[in-house]
Design a protein around this nucleic acid. Sequence first.
DNA 1: TCAAATGCTACCAATTGCGTATCAAATAAC
DNA 2: GTTATTTGATACGCAATTGGTAGCATTTGA
Lengths: 134, 134
Amino acid sequence: MITREADYGIRVLLLLARRERAGQGGESSVAIAEEMDIPYRFLRKLVKRMVAGRLLTSRRGKGGGLELARPAGRITLYDILEIMGPAGTRLSQCVATPGACRRAGTCRVHRVIGTIQTSVDRQLRAANLESLVD
Amino acid sequence: MITREADYGIRVLLLLARRERAGQGGESSVAIAEEMDIPYRFLRKLVKRMVAGRLLTSRRGKGGGLELARPAGRITLYDILEIMGPAGTRLSQCVATPGACRRAGTCRVHRVIGTIQTSVDRQLRAANLESLVD
DNA sequence: TCAAATGCTACCAATTGCGTATCAAATAAC
DNA sequence: GTTATTTGATACGCAATTGGTAGCATTTGA
């Protein structure tokens, strides 16, 4: 399951992508929280994560705020989910952590799940913010 | 994430499918726990769930035990996961629970995730126990 | 110097995951 | 009909995760 934190994250990035496309530049956490109806403190926490994960850049002090760290076309759902909670789109521990399972080589279930996981990842990588902006 | 409980569940069903194919009939929880190295009490709990979910039938008393409720070819990974923890393969609340999200109609993220979820489900439905037995 | 903004750490309640424990009921074999 | 074997039901416990909240430090533009 994609967590609420990850979901908020995606939407915050989308908002910034939209603003960027409109030539409006960055925005502050307070403003974003207000605009998107996300609890300010919670937003601050997840923004920190996205800054650390190099999805966003931040500028402190008056007039500061947040911006996309790179063009919207180069940020995919995969990137975002990988940083905001990779477990959300991992189907199985067995496949996620190589070596977690001794039967990995022979088990057919493992093979099937692995194939599905690969297809999920591929589709998430194909979805970038630019294509998701209205 | 597929939970350990669901994973055990799949493997227990696979064991029974293998025995059935070999014409060996059902087996008791004690024997299965021993054979598969699953904590007995924990196995009992998940077996109960699979009986309630009509994946297994049980017979109490001496000589009793467990059997597949229907032919292995008609039990899919989707069926099993649906009963043993549907959250494990659900990508998003937003898509899993219709009406959980007001933007469901217009949101592009929702659309992308929905498409991926559909493809996951299709692949899980295509994998039945018979095809997974060695 | 002051206000506006992020950085950092820590806390809290509810839920979930992974088991464990206890007793009741059914049933086959003797 | 007693006994051993087997499932049924309920409930408890501990650790990790999720979704927030709170407080203080630091940076920076005006």
